[in-house]
Design a protein around this nucleic acid. Structure first.
Lengths: 213, 213
DNA sequence: GAAAGGATGTTGTTTTTACAACAAATAATC
DNA sequence: GATTATTTGTTGTAAAAACAACATCCTTTC
């Protein structure tokens, strides 16, 4: 978010933004669901959970955020009046809070960083957008095999190579694709046996196959 | 995207942005996958398909866009060098193309709309972000029932009421939740019989239930 | 290098889903 | 208002996934 801004310049920028560093103890509420918020939060240390309750009051954790992660930025940029989610401290945590309105409105003083911040924000949102869209492409496939092929195809494209390593272990990949780990493991085994791919730890190689000609 | 800008002002704005209106015949390629693009496209009439090929060359349609829809904005904002998708004309179509760089860089002339455009873009990306995140929450549930409950809960929250109408017919809802229509229909029937909810066409009412006390 | 812990692969069972074919209800068209 | 589509609900069957329990491999730790 502060990409392209020198560390020395942060001293001037942060007060201009009205940025506040705050600490919360494990279990404390940071953003209350249904409350309004115009803030962007940045996790400095510790971890926070984004939580939501369904209609029947069952609490669910949507995400666990760790240092460097942002939260609230989409709701602030979209000017959502009431937060549909809450944010709580999963552990003792330090947060940097910035009022989005201070980012969006160019300040009167000579602080010239707002344009930069806004472009960083655009980029962050756009990249998240792309990542979310990709995940949806994978996750909406009906079978585990299709999900795997969709994901692995995307990775091969990214790597511009049929051989590539993935940043997940099996458990994390299964969670990402929203499937059962052991079932996924079994499916990978079948695909390997069918000659579709080969696997070695986190390194995958997709094999060309004679198709319907 | 042009929200907050009067129709009369568009005449000055569009040339300043270097906006070009173009027509394509059905089947024509608008954006080529793997090619670079800094453009944002807006569908004026007709329809376009966002398409992608997997590693084995199977072509898939990621989305069909209709008048008013934007495409390419995320890749432009994120400054992606090579498009991972292609865009083709699903029918004869008219498109407005705007170079994102002309939006992002405040122009030298007295045209004062860039700030407005950028904030509109931020909002568009943020709203899309929220919508995508919500969809992922629903779609990553393991069973059809959980997907339905997640989606219906979110709708009830939106409506701030346990009774609400949804903007989908059954087929569209099934596609959105990535499940089989008839299986979903059956599941809705079971849930209705269990007293979880009542349905009348597109109007749903969720029922409070005594839970585990 | 032995022991412990974690990650990964395997298998069998139960549950759930997709699929297909059809019935019923609703909407559209003439 | 009768006929034709379209949408929605139902049922049975085959396929797939989740789940659970365990074996194997790999890494870490002492």
């Amino acid at each position: 978010m502060f990409a392209g801004i020198a560390a020395g310049e942060m001293e001037r920028l942060l007060p201009c933004l009205g940025a506040r560093e705050r600490s919360y103890e494990k279990g404390e509420m940071i953003f209350q669901a249904e409350a309004p918020s115009t803030y962007v939060g940045i996790v400095l240390s510790g971890a926070v959970d984004v939580v939501q309750e369904d209609f029947w009051g069952n609490r669910g954790i949507l995400a666990r955020l760790t240092p460097g992660d942002l939260f609230g930025e989409a709701f602030s940029c979209a000017q959502v009046e009431k937060l549909p989610v809450g944010v709580t401290a999963a552990e003792d945590v330090a947060i940097l809070l910035v009022d989005y309105r201070r980012i969006a409105t160019t300040c009167t003083s000579a602080c010239g960083f707002h344009a930069r911040l806004i472009h960083n924000m655009l980029r962050i949102l756009a990249e998240k957008n792309i990542a979310l869209t990709q995940k949806i492409e994978h996750v909406t496939r009906r079978t585990t095999r299709e999900k795997l092929l969709s994901y692995l195809s995307a990775q091969a494209r990214r790597a511009r190579s049929s051989a590539f390593t993935i940043p997940f272990d099996r458990q994390a990949l299964a969670e990402y694709l929203a499937v059962d780990r052991s079932a996924m493991s079994a499916e990978l085994g079948r695909m390997r046996r069918e000659g579709l791919l080969s696997v070695e730890k986190n390194r995958f190689t997709l094999h060309e196959k004679a198709r319907d000609f």
